[in-house]
Design a protein around this nucleic acid. Structure first.
Lengths: 253, 253
DNA sequence: ATACTCAGATTGTCTGACAAATTATCTGGA
DNA sequence: TCCAGATAATTTGTCAGACAATCTGAGTAT
């Protein structure tokens, strides 16, 4: 019945702000507090929880960073319950990427494999609404290219919309996270590496294959597309390997 | 050169504690602060950054939740730089799972697909050290089973060790995250559903196939194993669908 | 050597105060 | 009536000071 870990577990060592944030989190989990709801002001919360305002503030910081609430100042401001949570995960993953815990090579490899899997589900579960948003995204990108504007955002959005069409929130979360890291990397090396024209053409062809229900064709196109992206990133991958390779290998946990 | 978003971005609207946490984060990214290093005490930091102690504390809360530091109280305590970061991501993902943003069905489907991909890399990159830890994990689980102790922890660890053997940190992060959600779910429904004996046998066979370099056999075993796990969870998936299905579908972004 | 005590350091929390930001309200004029 | 600007009210952001709780480590007595 017991795993050895749960035996003699600590009675109660939480800090007050942790208890407060947990309590509010629980209210959200249980549906008592719903997205859009406003929490009382810090002073009110302090009075109701019978703690100081500083304790409330630290609890709010936790909830804010965890993606549960946003805080606005000024009259009729205060903390309100958010509904999205994924941004925060992406941000943390990005931190890991920046700390070189994750190499560019690992990222591109994982991206290729995961998008391949996701596309398989897209073929099965995509609906008209998805197709419409994908078309819109591609068209917006094309228009930008015609005007000689880099369309990085739309190009990344294409992949996120694909993930959404798989109808699996886990895939959505993973792809959004990976795309955030890719975006971060592109913004650092300059987006001209992207040579958007080519990319948009690939996206258009992939979308066409999906609409025509040609699974193998879509998969082949995606693979070719991502391999090309990878080929274009290869110099940076090599550079990273030469520069930081040893250091990354050295620090093993 | 510019995406429309970055045009006219806010000059400087950050709150003080955000600037402080960003500054410390940057020091960590740049390698000036390394894991194990101790930060000055809150009072010292307040003096050095020329802000109040409360501001420092809110910054520390952010860094703590982001997985960059841990804080100990008492003499020669204070904040020290951590080296892991993945736990935090898992915790946030778990929050999303708890908020029913992610269904059990989506989780099991994604798990199956991703572990399949990961195993392919494991076949290519596994080394003796990995094999040793996998054997140890399996043996520990077997010993527990013999003594009629549930070995949930070891069973989940097997999959995490597999991910590690793929030598791709992105896969490690994803699998650890998924396993945290699985562990949370099992702890809520009671671990007797796991019927560990069967699970350990599968793990042993999978490991044997890996060691013998029989790729197809290993993949088949893994798939069978995970499908069985899924079958065992099916009642809960159905229950979740009946109970919360409409609500989940209703709130679409 | 071992166990106990105590001083010092550091985080955790409370209180009170004020500045800054934002919204709501009022007021006067067209 | 409607609009514009000033004003008030609300709420977060920050600082300062104080004390309690916790932990470490040195010193002391046995």
């Amino acid at each position: 019945m017991n795993t050895d870990k749960s035996l003699f577990s600590p009675i109660k060592n939480r800090r007050a702000f942790e208890e407060v944030s947990l309590k509010i989190k629980t209210l959200i989990f249980d549906g008592i507090l719903k997205p859009g709801d406003k929490l009382p002001s810090e002073t009110d919360l302090a009075r109701q929880f019978n703690v100081g305002r500083q304790t409330i503030r630290e609890a709010l910081r936790i909830l804010e960073l965890s993606g549960f609430i946003t805080v606005h100042r000024g009259g009729s401001g205060g903390p309100i319950i958010k509904d999205t949570i994924s941004n925060t995960i992406s941000a943390l993953f990005l931190d890991a990427f920046r700390m070189k815990k994750i190499s560019l090579e690992e990222l591109t490899v994982a991206r290729l494999e995961i998008e391949r899997v996701v596309l398989n589900y897209v073929m099965d579960y995509i609906d008209d609404s998805d197709i419409r948003s994908l078309h819109e995204s591609v068209n917006r990108a094309k228009k930008k290219i015609e005007n000689n504007i880099i369309a990085t955002e739309e190009n990344l959005q294409f992949h996120k919309l694909l993930a959404k069409a798989s109808k699996n929130h886990v895939f959505v979360l993973i792809v959004e996270t990976i795309m955030a890291a890719v975006a971060d990397f592109l913004s650092r090396i300059g987006p001209d590496v992207e040579t958007s024209g080519n990319v948009v053409e690939y996206h258009e062809q992939i979308l066409k294959a999906i609409v025509e229900k040609k699974r193998e064709k879509a998969l082949n196109l995606l693979e070719k597309h991502l391999l090309e992206v990878r080929r274009r990133l290869q110099p940076f991958i090599d550079q990273e390997k030469k520069a930081g390779g040893k250091e990354v290998d050295k620090q093993k946990g």
